[in-house]
Design a protein around this nucleic acid. Structure first.
Lengths: 150, 150
DNA sequence: TACCGGTTGCAATAACATGTCAACCGCTTC
DNA sequence: GAAGCGGTTGACATGTTATTGCAACCGGTA
């Protein structure tokens, strides 16, 4: 993520907080910066470890709560993945995922044709679609190498 | 899931175990039956609770390990979703998901047009695609009602 | 029927997540 | 720029989900 885009994201975050009546605290700003700096769908705990370097006394609880808050106001999202802990996704544009069925790793990809797939009508189910993403499941290169070795 | 299909799945499971050199134990069979009976992407713990009714002395550890084994030999799969615990998916045909961003619930859907989307070439990344699925993210009917009330 | 190697159950522990409450700080008002 | 309000934070306790090591056990084979 480049500098400019990061600054824009921080500005947008402040605006979004105000429009929701939420105070812009140092913790919230630093946690968002941290998530933006960490790539590859970090867990709450990975964010906590990194944020602790920037605010040594920050509480784990605050990190969990803040990530939840940022998700609720759509500044970030939770990533869909097969693992056993929540992972956060900083990207807010349409993109897609390669999901490794061996190590549960999730890799972002972009693909024009996938961006244009037809979205079915789900109104009869009462489901309101905001967003979509395609998951391609298989084996990543690292795991394939491991298999070949054994 | 109808009876016939369930019996076929159990037969297939035994065959798959043998081809992997894995013994077919009572626990494995009952845990698979339990998962097939439970709909809606159960967690390991939900499987444990249900399996305990059928084998009272079964250990939680065994349920976790068996679900992992069944996943490894592709008898079931892990569902991709935004929540904080592993969920299992019993369906092995191509299908898609509605993911509620409020309650993290995952609803299966079928859609012919989504079944025919173009799969991008990922060979340059060394990623081998086995399977795919489209996730439509938004708000489910239950959560939408709750929002309206408040 | 007896043996072998993988599987199971138990207990302990690790990893991940949430609830409570007093002290604190961002924001608004004056 | 000082004071006060209300939401936020940090510490601690607790709850939930998942993993590990090891002895007893059982499915598969001869």
């Amino acid at each position: 993520m480049d500098k400019l885009s990061k600054q824009k994201r921080l500005d947008l975050f402040e605006k979004t907080c105000r429009s929701h009546g939420l105070p812009v605290t140092i913790q919230r700003r630093v946690i968002l910066e941290t998530v933006l700096d960490l790539d590859n769908h970090p867990t709450a705990d990975q964010v906590f470890v990194e944020a602790s370097k920037r605010i040594p006394d920050i509480s784990r609880t605050t990190v969990y709560r803040t990530l939840d808050t940022l998700t609720r106001i759509s500044v970030i999202t939770k990533a869909c993945h097969p693992g056993s802990s929540v992972r956060y996704d900083t990207r807010i544009d349409v993109h897609h995922h390669l999901v490794c069925q061996s190590c549960d790793d999730v890799i972002d990809i972009s693909d024009d044709r996938l961006d244009r797939i037809p979205i079915p009508d789900t109104s009869s189910l009462g489901f309101e679609v905001n967003d979509f993403s395609v998951q391609l499941r298989g084996i990543c290169s690292r795991c394939k190498q491991k298999e070949d070795q054994s």
